[in-house]
Design a protein around this nucleic acid. Sequence first.
DNA 1: TATCATGTAACATCATGTGATACATGATTC
DNA 2: GAATCATGTATCACATGATGTTACATGATA
Lengths: 152, 152
Amino acid sequence: MIRDTRLSGVLHVLLHMAEHEGPVTSEVLARAMQTNAVVIRRTMAGLKKRGYVRSEKGHGGGWSLACDLNTVTLGDVYEALGRPPLFAIGNRSEAPQCLVEQAVNAALDQAFHQAQELLLASFQGVTLAALSADFHRRLERHPSKQTGTDHA
Amino acid sequence: MIRDTRLSGVLHVLLHMAEHEGPVTSEVLARAMQTNAVVIRRTMAGLKKRGYVRSEKGHGGGWSLACDLNTVTLGDVYEALGRPPLFAIGNRSEAPQCLVEQAVNAALDQAFHQAQELLLASFQGVTLAALSADFHRRLERHPSKQTGTDHA
DNA sequence: TATCATGTAACATCATGTGATACATGATTC
DNA sequence: GAATCATGTATCACATGATGTTACATGATA
């Protein structure tokens, strides 16, 4: 079971962009994220469509923020990624004839539905600005650690 | 991202066993679950270790329930499966140097932690007996649908 | 016009869950 | 006690997706 790390990754990218003046190329972001430039472009496509970021071609081009960090939440970013599945556990079949399976599905569905509501509400409750503020708090306490592209 | 359906599947098996008098072989269960007998044995191993089911070899052998449905919950079964990962979304790195990533991780971790608590609490709140009762309610309303091994 | 960067399509690669096979162990039946 | 049946695993084969890579078209800048 491989976990989808795009949400984590794209938030990382956005916060870095917030610290950086001017556009950043996919190539640079890819190096920072230890991945490929094409993967960055793929991931950012959804954000661009929603107007959270802007991209420019040619010399001096790259990605830059196009939104107010105070108004965009983790939930917005999650949706921009196309609402990828949250849970790693699911039902064997969706609309089973078997009444046993229906009972099992109903119980699991209810539990997961509640958890999903809570998760999405949590996401909506955190703005990018709040994330950035948290980052700056950490920065004050550990000034040695850098903002840049040196990752573990 | 493939979902883990073992919890759904094993609950299905347990409820069927509750309806069935006497042991059921892995072969029969596999046919009902549209899978392989070895997969059934693999999955049941954890339940057996916890004493929720019993297995007997030889003629007339197979699997049978060894617990009170009123005391075993979905949470117990989930743990018997080895607490498989609940979420399909995760952090890019676990203990990053980067303070940006730390801030991102912290926000996501908190959200997922809350959701996990809720999920596990939901699981603990549902006994196998409750599931079975729900099944029987459905059975009364749709007597045509069978208990057996005819699955969609 | 050369270079740079995005935007995508198409393909390669790799991880991993699941199915399949093989065989050892133990229990039952005749 | 020999044959059969069933579990218990180890091991391998296979399918499925996610991710990485290559290639090339498009557009912008110098």
